[in-house]
């Protein structure tokens, strides 16, 4: 049997390595450090159709991730989709920002891309983005294409 001190040291090292690995997974592998909801503000956007957007889908400006979708609900009166987003507090957006739902790559995940306008006034917390472009639904485009094709003939 090993002497007690060596054993203690090795067990200590093992546990430390294990905990370091857990930290590594949390910080480096996942997005825990990339984004935390503790330090964020909420904004909303109205879309005619939010397509395949999901809770936790990324929200980005010019390709840089600044937040994520935190809730998707439906407006009972207008039947529009209301998307709630958490935006990192260090980024402030003008109040004429527009939002579009894009797809990463041809078949990738859908995400929200924000396009800041030229306004001087910032978008307040819980503010609403009016100018939006809905998700492109592949079936609709194909349907449209086939319909046009048929109409031509």
């Amino acid at each position: 049997m090993q002497n007690t001190k060596t054993q203690d040291t090795l067990v200590g090292l093992f546990v430390a390595c294990g905990i370091a690995a857990l930290f590594f997974m949390a910080m480096q592998i996942s997005n825990l450090n990339g984004f935390s909801t503790d330090n964020a503000y909420t904004i909303n956007a109205r879309f005619e159709n939010s397509g395949g957007l999901k809770v936790k889908s990324p929200v980005s400006v010019a390709g840089v991730r600044i937040g994520r979708v935190s809730n998707i609900s439906i407006d009972r009166d207008s039947y529009e989709s209301i998307v709630e987003m958490q935006i990192d507090a260090q980024y402030s957006l003008p109040d004429d920002t527009s939002a579009s739902i894009f797809t990463a790559g041809l078949l990738g995940e859908q995400y929200i891309s924000l396009e800041p306008g030229g306004s001087e006034d910032p978008l307040p917390a819980n503010g609403l983005i009016d100018i939006t472009q809905s998700a492109i639904v592949l079936e609709e485009i194909i349907g449209q294409f086939l319909f046009d094709k048929a109409a031509e003939e």
Partner: peptide, 19 residues
């Protein structure tokens, strides 16, 4: 390599579930 990984994996859904 790292940024795609961080964007693609969620702490709650992936890491915690794996643990």
């Amino acid at each position: 390599y790292w940024s795609q990984m961080q964007a693609g994996l969620d702490f709650q859904d992936d890491i915690i579930n794996g643990i």
